[in-house]
């Protein structure tokens, strides 16, 4: 089972990452782009957490009778990264709100058209 799963996790995670990446670069809607970034980043988190996993281990909270723990360091990194992702999402969406107010649209193509007219 482990052998089969050897890279399965990583491959799926890569597909997930690319889904997010695709939304960012292919979709013209600004909100959707931010969502794409969010998906992209969240999937990267899964990659990190996957590498921290150890066969037969438990969460890294020291307790009597347990000896195998998963690696706490990626967890820490991802805690930080989640916060970064939230900050990015908040700022991105705030910008979208302002753009919507200034242009009356949140579609990239329409914004380009308006900018050309300026």
């Amino acid at each position: 089972m482990t052998e089969l799963l050897g890279h399965y996790n990583y491959w799926i995670v890569i597909i997930l990452m690319m889904t997010g990446f695709y939304i960012v670069i292919a979709r013209p809607n600004l909100v959707k782009k931010v969502i794409g970034l969010f998906i992209f980043q969240t999937s990267v988190f899964i990659l990190f957490i996957s590498m921290a996993k150890i066969e037969g281990g438990t969460a890294p909270i020291i307790e009597e009778g347990l000896s195998v723990y998963s690696n706490p360091l990626p967890h820490v990194l991802i805690l930080t990264a989640i916060v970064v992702s939230l900050a990015t999402t908040a700022l991105g969406l705030a910008l979208v709100v302002r753009i919507q107010e200034a242009y009356g649209t949140s579609n990239e193509d329409d914004i380009h058209v308006q900018d050309e007219e300026d």
Binding site: F45, I49, A52, K53, A59, S70, L79, I82
Partner: peptide, 10 residues
């Protein structure tokens, strides 16, 4: 994946 802290935060 045994990352409970991360799960809570996510």
């Amino acid at each position: 994946l045994d990352a409970v802290d991360v799960a809570l935060t996510e």
